[in-house]
Computed example of a mutant assay.
Amino acid sequence: MTVSRVGIFWRIGATGAAPELLVDCVPVAHAESYGDFLTHGGHYEFWCALSRLSASELRQRNVPDVVLWSEYEEWPRGRVVFHVPSDRFIIYADRKLQGSATIDRIVQRFRLTRDRVDILGDPHYISLR
């Protein structure tokens, strides 16, 4: 059985590299309650924690070194939450991420079932790049 996850994500990539997803997620059973939602993580806190690592530590974790030379709000980002009353997942994402290929990658990484997902924009998730 696949266990769905909630958390935060970015689409990042060094110059000339293919964009990839940077994700911090947990299984729904380990999520934090936030009103009617289950959620996980904060973009700023996670980025700061990564930026304190060395380039070699980032490579060991398969994290691109963009966290060392850029800010978290520069990259298109979003969040996956679970809405308890509707029994559905919501992907809040920068509009730059709302194309079907990127949404499919997010659905796969968070182990979601596509027919239980709603995609919404949010003014918090507008990147500078």
Rank of each mutant, 00 (worst) to 15 (best):
I126W: 09
V84L: 09
L53D: 05
R79D: 03
S56R: 13
D87K: 08
S4I: 11
Y125K: 04
W69C: 13
R116D: 14
V28W: 08
E71A: 07
R114P: 06
P27F: 01
W47T: 07
R79H: 06
F110T: 00
A14I: 07
T102K: 01
V63A: 15
H43M: 01
G13L: 04
A31W: 03
R111K: 01
Y125I: 03
F89L: 02
S4E: 14
A55P: 05
V67C: 04
V107N: 08
V3W: 13
I106M: 04
L120D: 05
S127K: 04
R129A: 10
W47D: 06
G78F: 13
D36G: 01
I12F: 06
M1H: 15
V63W: 15
S100T: 14
R114G: 05
A31N: 03
F46Y: 12
L38W: 11
V107M: 04
H124K: 13
L38K: 14
E45Q: 10
D115Q: 08
V84W: 13
L22S: 00
E74A: 06
F37V: 00
Y72R: 08
N62E: 13
P123S: 14
Q108P: 05
L21N: 00
Q60G: 15
G16P: 04
I126N: 09
F46C: 05
D36T: 00
I119V: 15
A18K: 13
D94A: 03
Y72L: 11
I91A: 01
R77P: 09
V81P: 11
Q60H: 15
Q60E: 15
E32R: 05
I91C: 01
V26T: 02
Y72Q: 13
A31E: 01
A93S: 10
Y72P: 10
R88F: 02
S100I: 09
E57K: 07
E32Q: 11
Q108H: 14
P27G: 06
I8D: 08
A17E: 15
C48F: 12
G16V: 04
I119Q: 09
S54Q: 11
R95P: 05
V26K: 00
A14E: 14
L128Q: 15
H43L: 00
Y92S: 06
G99H: 05
A49C: 06
L120P: 03
L68R: 10
I91G: 00
S86Q: 13
V81Y: 06
P19A: 05
H43Y: 11
R105G: 07
R111G: 01
D24C: 01
L120K: 12
P123N: 14
T15R: 14
Q60R: 15
L112F: 07
G13S: 10
V3N: 15
K96R: 13
N62C: 12
E74S: 10
P64N: 13
H83R: 04
R105V: 08
A29N: 07
L97V: 01
V67P: 12
E74W: 09
D122F: 10
G13V: 02
R5V: 01
S51T: 10
L58G: 13
E45S: 09
K96M: 06
G41N: 10
G7M: 02
L58D: 12
A18W: 07
P76W: 03
Y125Q: 05
A31H: 02
I103V: 09
D36S: 05
F37I: 00
